[in-house]
Write a protein that binds this DNA or RNA. Sequence first.
DNA 1: GCCATGACTAAGCGCTTGCTTAGTCTTTGA
DNA 2: TCAAAGACTAAGCAAGCGCTTAGTCATGGC
Lengths: 223, 223
Amino acid sequence: MLVNMTDRAPTRTAGRVRTYDALAIPLTDDVTETALRLMEAAADAFADKGFHATTTRDVASRAGLSPAGVYVHFASKEELLFSICMRGHTAARDMIVDAAAAADSPVDALAAIMTNFSRWHAEHYRVGRIVQYEFAHLTPAHREAVMGLRKEIDAQVRSVLLDGIGRGDFVIDDVPHTTLALMSLCIDVARWYQPGIKRTPAEIGETNGRLGLRLAGARWAAT
Amino acid sequence: MLVNMTDRAPTRTAGRVRTYDALAIPLTDDVTETALRLMEAAADAFADKGFHATTTRDVASRAGLSPAGVYVHFASKEELLFSICMRGHTAARDMIVDAAAAADSPVDALAAIMTNFSRWHAEHYRVGRIVQYEFAHLTPAHREAVMGLRKEIDAQVRSVLLDGIGRGDFVIDDVPHTTLALMSLCIDVARWYQPGIKRTPAEIGETNGRLGLRLAGARWAAT
DNA sequence: GCCATGACTAAGCGCTTGCTTAGTCTTTGA
DNA sequence: TCAAAGACTAAGCAAGCGCTTAGTCATGGC
């Protein structure tokens, strides 16, 4: 991985902080309950106010700590944002890989990806907005790490499309652009979804599953 | 309109500031060159750094003024953001209304809307990002004004779809959701577009025009 | 039991930020 | 011509902000 959090100067907290890998994903179950609580608090505050308008005091108090307590577990406010982005993208990547692996055909795989990814963005629209809107506040190295995961997601979807084209299930002029368009349907749910609207996340997922097949020119999608 | 900038307490600058209407759109050609310059500078800075991380000093210096100079023309930093959002949305609304009016059929109207709106988001991806990502920093009243324009845009697209359904040109299960999906294709271009990529804004527009007709289940779109 | 480590705190640092105030200079209108 | 208005400035205010430092307390290992 591109980033190693041991870059941080050794302090009394170095041993604990180093239990994370660069993905800020727990390697084992020994991630502290406090660090998790901080990430959740930060996600909450960032979603409410945006990254820069969120103070570390706000994050700390939401997590029930003093302001300096944040720095026991994270090197900086940006590191908190990075952790949230990496967790979100890793979850999305895994979901897409699993959906594709479980499907019997490219058509099923695409429908499952669209359905699940769209539902996820509705259910997690707040994290989805953070991940999109606050991306520019990451350090260049951290942005690169996040882009790596985005590219994996893109590549997985693209390979489903190519497989479907190969089998004659999809009719697509421009695969890269169609991939982007499919991803747009899913990702943009985070922008327009809000709790209380008539459609449930599951319904949104299903509708986008069908619409995605239309975009791919799936044979039976036009009816 | 919901908001009237004359709410601001009278100062020596009240006369000048009141030449804007609540849309922050120039009513006549007497908008000052300085105010325009400030809006452009703010858009630049907001796109680079985000709203909250942008200082009024930064905006002022980009516009060639002292920090206090911003307040001669705008009541607050937020008012600058509001102006930018309203100008962007008004331009988009007008573009969509014009495209629909110039078309001979719902199919042509939808293709034109998708093509032009997508191209606009590529060409103005920085303003597009500001408008999406910084929306939450507007005051509630200003957000409501912006939402009003968004609803007009949505309604225009929806009426094209309904017209097409009525003529048998489109096959759509869920009109509101399909409207959102069509808008997602266009709006999300601002997220993924960056200068230097292979596709030009015009090409992106054309491809999205075709993909939009697929989403609408246009009869010949599947071939 | 003792010492080292880790989790956490209160206090504070040095700097920044949106905005205001009191002024100067230029332009406009009577 | 003169006064008022408008465009703008330099200076400053009050509050805030990410982060550091020096300390306390609890836990775990020897």
